[in-house]
Design a protein around this nucleic acid. Sequence first.
DNA 1: CATATTGTTCGACTGTTATCGAATTATCCA
DNA 2: TGGATAATTCGATAACAGTCGAACAATATG
Lengths: 105, 105
Amino acid sequence: MSNNKTMTPEEFAEIFKALSNPNRLKIFTLLASCCIPGTVSVLDSDDTACVGDLGRELDIVKSTVSHHIKELRRVGLIRTRRDGQKILCWVDPDLVNALRDFFAF
Amino acid sequence: MSNNKTMTPEEFAEIFKALSNPNRLKIFTLLASCCIPGTVSVLDSDDTACVGDLGRELDIVKSTVSHHIKELRRVGLIRTRRDGQKILCWVDPDLVNALRDFFAF
DNA sequence: CATATTGTTCGACTGTTATCGAATTATCCA
DNA sequence: TGGATAATTCGATAACAGTCGAACAATATG
């Protein structure tokens, strides 16, 4: 609704690359399932951090999770915000819509 | 419409990996734009081969195109059929629909 | 201030991928 | 059968990616 810039094949390829790693895809899916678009992630409980939760949930060490989060953020799939010690994450609904449109033909 | 098997995160990741290379994505996009779903690819003229055409159109050597076609086919994004000397390619509409649904939330 | 918690950065290792040209296979046709 | 055309396979090379643990930085709290 708000994102109407045209994307190049190279940009799309970068986004798909970000989703091409199973762990990174699981992180994305988990965020997509637990986050109300446009708001922060809360996962199950309200007072737990996203990065830590994701690692615990998916059994990945935190440095790897951090690496993946950075990559997802770089291509615009997710957004982050610091809240105290924690980094809260949520998916960018505009980019998800653009991806859905990509496969609509 | 006809494909209602559930896909694992690993399978989705493999598909996104297939689309993560710019040249492979261009091949897929070109096939998607020129092929009527369910039928064979004809590109511009009727009597030219898909693999050769794709290489000429995108300026990639044929061994590389062949490699990419093989990968796209392996993950189920496209289907192929031999017609004489040529290999005709077209996208699998069911998988495209599954991808569209993946981003529908 | 000292300590605990959360996340990032760094270095290393391992494995994978994209690309090309050469050789090979398959098909058609004269 | 022999030549032409189309595509695949193979080998090599160069670049990149995922993962981990250790060290570091930021924040909160006693």
